[in-house]
Design a binder for these strands. Structure first.
Lengths: 205, 205
DNA sequence: TTTTGGTTTAACCATTTGGTTGCAATAAAT
DNA sequence: ATTTATTGCAACCAAATGGTTAAACCAAAA
């Protein structure tokens, strides 16, 4: 007998595909490289996943799930805008620290709009209106005088910038500026507090 | 005979290559696509630029030049840290508004470290110590009590995040959230002021 | 006019790549 | 025992892709 849900091989393939796709992007990824990484042969890849596209779709969706899995629950929690953001910032940085390449991967595929990725994401957003709800809450707190009257988009974009970009820019720090990994990890940890300070000082009245 | 600097064809090729490489990335770019875009045939590409790599190198370097051409002069100008940042933020946003895909392109290639891009960038940084000088100036102003005592890296990372990420995330806004182009452009314009407000409130004492 | 040297084109080439097929070996389920 | 699903391998295929070549074109220099 094999498995509870996914066969071990299937898991190996997913792990390998994740690594190769994230490292090289869709076009740069080679099925052979994935097979090698998973220590199986190419025929097995197609036995489990019909095509490169099919495999890629899985990886992309799991990456999106990882990201939105941290963002949406925070927005849905109860509390003030700032309380929600506190949750979001901490969760996001913790999660992405484990998978630093996810933001770059997702945004890159989004930019190239492979397999109509944009539309498929839009569909998911539409069925979940927590983002829209959050925007309304922002405007409400602005009217109540808690938040400064700055476009909600600016607030969201600012938060996203402050937490996502550091991971996208990681190669600049560890590669070009030769800052060691552990120090970068420490910076990310410090960032949780710093980002919230920045947000509060900038958007709270 | 030829003309002053670059033949018209050469320019056409560079324009076409820039477009295709930035749109599709190195691995996804096709020499045929570049040729089509430049309305010449494939052999001409190799006549002017030996290989895909050679062509790519040119594009990448011009992209880096565009970016550092806005950053370094601002850091070298005279004035306080905040005055320099003001210059940097304005110049950067203006320039990248004209070429919104450059940050994504550069950071992506940096992440994949194609053609030892990281090392070649490091070499360029070493010959130009304006970044290091700027970091020292930050620390000086911190000791003088003008700036809050936060690691200089955090300040730089924060500034970079606030100005670069909005362009990287552009597809989310225009593609997924269906915000029209002109409104996005307007946001970027507003951002110049907002970013400086954020920086000042967060890092000035 | 002839030569020269940059420019252009179409046909061609070698390799890579995603994907397939047939077959054998093994394990599991009926 | 017999069917059924899984694993493994090697050869193969068609299409795509980066790159080459040889010959033609054309403007200016000699």
């Amino acid at each position: 007998m094999k498995q509870t849900k996914k066969s071990e091989t299937e898991q190996l393939i997913l792990e390998a595909a994740k690594k190769v796709f994230i490292e090289k992007g869709y076009a740069g990824a080679r099925m052979q490289a994935i097979a090698d990484e998973a220590q199986i042969n190419k025929a097995m890849l197609h036995y489990y996943y019909r095509s490169k596209e099919a495999l890629f779709t899985q990886i992309l969706e799991s990456a999106v799930a990882t990201m939105s899995g941290q963002i949406l629950p925070a927005l849905q929690a109860k509390g003030t805008v700032m309380e929600k953001l506190e949750l979001l910032v901490t969760n996001y940085i913790d999660t992405i620290t484990q998978n630093p390449y996810i933001p770059m991967f997702v945004l890159n595929e989004l930019a190239q709009n492979r397999l109509n990725f944009q539309e498929s994401l839009m569909a998911k957003m539409a069925t979940n209106d927590s983002v829209e709800e959050f925007m309304k809450q922002i405007m409400k707190e602005q009217k109540a005088g808690v938040l400064r009257p700055i476009g909600p988009h600016h607030l969201m974009l600012t938060v996203m910038s402050l937490i996502a970009f550091p991971f996208i820019a990681k190669p600049i720090f560890t590669g070009v500026m030769k800052i060691p990994e552990f120090m970068y990890a420490q910076m990310m940890e410090e960032r949780k507090q710093l980002v919230m300070e920045i947000i509060k000082k900038s958007f709270l009245k």
